[in-house]
Write a protein that binds this DNA or RNA. Structure first.
Lengths: 354, 354
DNA sequence: CTGAAAGCGCTTACAG
DNA sequence: CTGAAAGCGCTTACAG
């Protein structure tokens, strides 16, 4: 360990400018009450010396706590997808605790837009210094965003975004590109001549822009690379009872597919179906590393899972608020998450954090 | 912004124990000069109150700089692989600058073990508080490690490791598992009946444990899943001139393969070969996202690249030293990097940092 | 063995 | 409009 070498302090600036450190602080933070002349002089010296404030000293002295709020869909179970971004949020907040950063996390029902409104109000009520939200219900999200802008509270979209809505940043996937990749994988591993099915296990396709984009990208790959391949889409809105299996039964009677792409994390439903009906030789790919999906990957019922590092998304979103609100740095506006391919062979090494 | 809520300070401990903060500090840092009785009393209160020191205040007051050293192979060009871990190192160091953390980075020749020794001595000469090293030359690395242990300097292996050599941690890949994955990918996309080649473009296979492990994993996948497939290995030690192409020419005359696995980043050599000789229909996979490899991915000459997030490895290694040396936290001993599959379709979203 | 004081670089009232 | 002082939680000599 050696002595720390010279760092520019506000004291240095003050002495060069023949003012007190209080005055330097005033121009540093645009707190006014400084004559234009001294302001200029101080600013000039700050630039010359390439001054950067010491964040440690600053947060230590200020004794401020900044509060970030998150607003995510409520996961239906402890295994649910939306637990993962939250895990990343909690992780980054723990690291930033010394900086006086805290969060309040809100969740809303995935089936009740009114609940979103209610939770959005709760977010506003805690008067956060920054917000991370999943704009699940478009209209209601726009309303919340309007209020945030009005109050000058920076916000970041996660998972999906409203374009040009005044967000500080977006953290999430590019679903079309992800669909292209799924197309390549399934197209490549499905023997020539085998038909391809795309299955949406989703209630309201209106609010599921991701799934639509994935489907579009998927079809696009085949258009470009295997135009002769038969590709079709099935929509299964309700999987609560077992009627949906009859629909599939009928389809299978008609023609057995060579490969199936499930556009979301419910690929395990299809894997269970194939297993139950003793169907082999059908290639299957889907999304997200849920526990069930992992098991089917390991038992060879699912060939590939496309993943998007949800924990990292949460971590990154909070980190961006931190960079912007505390460190006063600029942040990237669009942050597309890597599109990861997970297989039986690499699943044990697939993790978000090191 | 709201007032920060109560945190336990050493002042609180001091008042409860009826001692001064100086005394608390002495027991906190085992600086001795405290009677056993008061030591016990203070320790008890620290535990009761679940005290955690404020790192910001601590580093601010201490004015210490800690120095980490890195010792990596010298990249042969600015595109070379080893620039990437270094990039991660530089990135994390920049973030930690406020904590008074700095690095000195040393590199050694990949063809001259004596140079390693020389650089190792240079590392010792700067008397670092922690070291990250790639144990490229095994014997010479052992010698360095011995000195580090003697001086009680913690060190982390990156990229490959010596087992049980007293390291604080290892950050790197599991090459066998990575080979398994390569086997699966190539086995799945190569039409039945096509022969598979494994190509090592490497000078001294002795120092290339990674390549051997990848090859073993690769063969293992075929043993388990496609035992009927013809798989063989070619070693091309020297690619500086064009003799190596003649070797390949001869092999092609013998039998055209269905798929080729290049065990390292030199897969672009094979892609160039196929392109130059107008050979199509041969599946090709390899390692690492060099610029050339990226281009061949995009031009469809390379089907998959297996990647290991080298920047993240450098970042993570420095971060682990930081956690251990500054934050006094425990760190994981084995840290296997994710094994990433990169294709034309996801390459633009593949990055190490968000 | 123990305590009181000065200082790290910054922020925050307060006095003028 | 400006400066001087106290304080953030901790560390570091120094005095006793």
């Amino acid at each position: 360990m050696t002595e720390q070498n010279s760092q520019i302090r506000i004291k240095d600036i003050a002495s060069r400018a023949n003012v007190s450190i209080g005055t330097v602080d005033r121009v540093l933070h645009n707190r006014g009450e400084v004559s234009e002349k001294t302001r200029r002089k101080v600013l000039k010296i700050i630039k010359e010396l390439n001054y950067h404030p010491n964040i440690l000293a600053s947060t230590l002295a200020s004794k401020k706590t900044v509060l970030f709020a998150t607003l995510f869909p409520q996961p239906p179970s402890p295994e649910g997808y939306w637990n993962k971004p939250l895990k990343g949020v909690v992780m980054r907040i723990a690291e930033l605790q010394q900086y006086g950063v805290a969060t309040q996390n809100f969740t809303f029902s995935q089936t009740d837009a009114a609940d979103f409104e209610k939770q959005a109000n709760a977010v506003l009520d805690v008067n956060p210094d920054g917000v991370v939200l999943a704009p699940f219900y478009i209209r209601e999200s726009r309303r919340l965003v309007g209020m945030l802008i009005e109050r000058k509270i920076p916000f970041i979209f996660i998972d999906s975004e409203l374009k040009n809505a005044g967000q500080l940043s977006y953290v999430g996937q590019d679903s079309f590109q992800s669909g292209l990749l799924s197309g390549k994988l399934l197209g490549t591993i499905t023997p020539a001549g085998g038909a391809i099915w795309v299955i949406h296990f989703a209630k309201e396709m209106d609010n599921q822009n991701h799934l639509i984009q994935r489907e579009l990208g998927f079809y696009e790959w085949f258009r470009q690379n295997q135009p002769e391949r038969a590709v079709r889409t099935l929509e299964i809105p309700n999987t609560d009872c077992c009627d949906w299996e009859k629909t599939i039964d009928a389809e299978f009677l008609n023609q057995e597919p060579g490969g199936i792409f499930v556009t979301n994390s419910k690929v395990f439903l299809m894997a269970e179906y194939l297993q139950k009906n003793n169907i082999s030789g059908v290639r299957l790919i889907g999304h997200d590393l849920l526990e069930k999906n992992r098991n089917f990957l390991e038992s060879n019922h699912v060939d590939f899972l496309i993943c998007q590092r949800p924990e990292e998304q949460g971590y990154s979103a909070i980190n961006k608020l931190f960079q912007y609100v505390i460190l006063k740095k600029q942040v990237e506006k669009e942050n597309y998450t890597p599109i990861d391919i997970v297989t039986k062979e690499n699943v044990n090494y697939y993790k978000d954090f090191n």
